[in-house]
Simulated scan of single mutants.
Amino acid sequence: MKGEVRLRSYTQDPAEIAAYGPLQDETGAKLIEIEHVRVTPKAVIARVKGVTTREGAEALNGTKLYLARAALPAREEGEWYVADLIGLDAVDTSGAPLGTVVGVHNFGAGDLVEVAPANGGETLLVPFTEAAVPEVDIENGRLVLVPPEELDED
Results as ranks from 00 to 15, higher is better:
4 E>A: 11
8 R>N: 12
16 E>R: 05
18 A>H: 10
18 A>W: 01
18 A>D: 08
23 L>Y: 04
26 E>W: 04
28 G>D: 09
32 I>E: 01
34 I>A: 04
34 I>Y: 03
34 I>L: 14
37 V>E: 07
38 R>C: 08
39 V>R: 03
40 T>A: 15
40 T>Q: 13
41 P>Q: 06
42 K>V: 14
43 A>P: 00
44 V>F: 11
44 V>A: 11
46 A>I: 04
46 A>S: 04
52 T>L: 09
57 A>V: 06
59 A>V: 11
66 Y>T: 08
67 L>F: 05
67 L>N: 01
68 A>G: 12
69 R>H: 05
74 A>Y: 01
75 R>A: 15
78 G>P: 03
80 W>Q: 03
83 A>R: 11
83 A>S: 10
84 D>H: 07
87 G>Q: 08
88 L>K: 01
90 A>C: 12
97 P>Q: 10
98 L>G: 01
100 T>S: 12
100 T>P: 00
101 V>T: 09
102 V>C: 04
104 V>N: 02
105 H>N: 13
105 H>P: 00
110 G>A: 14
111 D>S: 09
112 L>S: 08
114 E>R: 12
117 P>I: 10
119 N>K: 10
120 G>D: 06
127 P>E: 07
129 T>K: 03
129 T>H: 04
133 V>D: 02
136 V>N: 11
137 D>N: 15
138 I>L: 15
138 I>Q: 06
143 L>H: 00
143 L>C: 08
146 V>H: 02
149 E>I: 12
149 E>M: 09
150 E>Q: 11
150 E>L: 14
150 E>K: 05
152 D>T: 10
153 E>P: 00
